[in-house]
Design a protein around this nucleic acid. Structure first.
Lengths: 149, 149
DNA sequence: GGAATCTGGTTGCCACGGCAACCACATTCG
DNA sequence: CGAATGTGGTTGCCGTGGCAACCAGATTCC
């Protein structure tokens, strides 16, 4: 049977630890400074990335790789806070559009700079441009492997 | 203000996506084949790593970087399933030991090989040894940066 | 020695995510 | 057309994690 050697173990534990620490820190910071969670943030970013700030719910789910129930509930929460609105779809009466509201746009534009700056400080100020490329290549390779099955 | 350039964006999104995909897949697989969650697994691994399979609850929390309430609840759940036992501490009467039971040791030893094999297949069969080293170095650097504040 | 403080651990509350069941509409196919 | 199947989305249930409040036992400091 194959175990992990010391270097692999360091890499694997490092990866898991790094994510746990970063996610915790970024989430706390985001929440504290803007009242948004990382999930809120991700939804709003996806909406700002698209013309009119309008997406079908399932498109949001595909983009975020989220379970559809997660999309549904997250959108419901954001809608309750007025950051997005739900609109019906005429072409497919089952469907729903999720639309960024002015308040939502304001929220994400207020939150993004400090968030991105923190990512810079913690991550990209710490590693070299060459490491950034290598990091991206590694993630990309493994992701493709996962897609393949 | 500093934004993320294209490479940084690829690295960052890749990191987040990779973790989400891997964690989902590994968790599902682990749960299906052994009835353990990743959290269960992590606790049991930490206990097997130590002589007598016995740790103070706070040591477990330090090792896993978990909130103490998380430790408390996770241990309670594992104890209810007979995989660990809680023992009082005589030296500090507030304290509690968490001890791996024979059933717990059996469970982790049954679960580990398939889990590690899956990590191998998805991750380490996909990237070169040089990339493994670089990956570990990157995670390590950023983690140290986070510790520093 | 005793009050203030600290520390280890538990509990309650709430938000969140996964899963399966379900509903409504759409599409396919005989 | 109409039945079967597929798809978009919602809901309920349950396990889980974070946070704050809390409790009991330890420690500090006068």
């Amino acid at each position: 049977m194959r175990w992990l050697d010391a270097t692999q173990m360091r890499a694997w534990r490092g990866f898991l630890d790094l994510h746990a620490r970063l996610a915790a820190k970024l989430n706390r910071d985001l929440q504290r400074t803007s009242g948004l969670t990382l999930s809120d943030y991700d939804v709003l970013v996806h909406l700002t990335d698209v013309p009119e700030g309008r997406l079908r719910a399932f498109e949001l789910g595909d983009g975020l790789q989220w379970d559809k129930s997660r999309v549904s509930k997250q959108v419901a929460r954001l809608a309750a806070r007025g950051l997005v609105a739900k609109e019906e779809c005429e072409a497919d009466r089952r469907g729903a559009y999720v639309v960024l509201t002015p308040a939502g746009r304001e929220a994400i534009e207020a939150a993004a700079p400090a968030h991105v700056e923190l990512v810079h400080r913690l991550v990209f100020d710490t590693i070299t441009p060459e490491q950034v490329r290598e990091w991206a290549a590694i993630s990309r390779a493994i992701l493709q492997r996962i897609e393949a099955g």
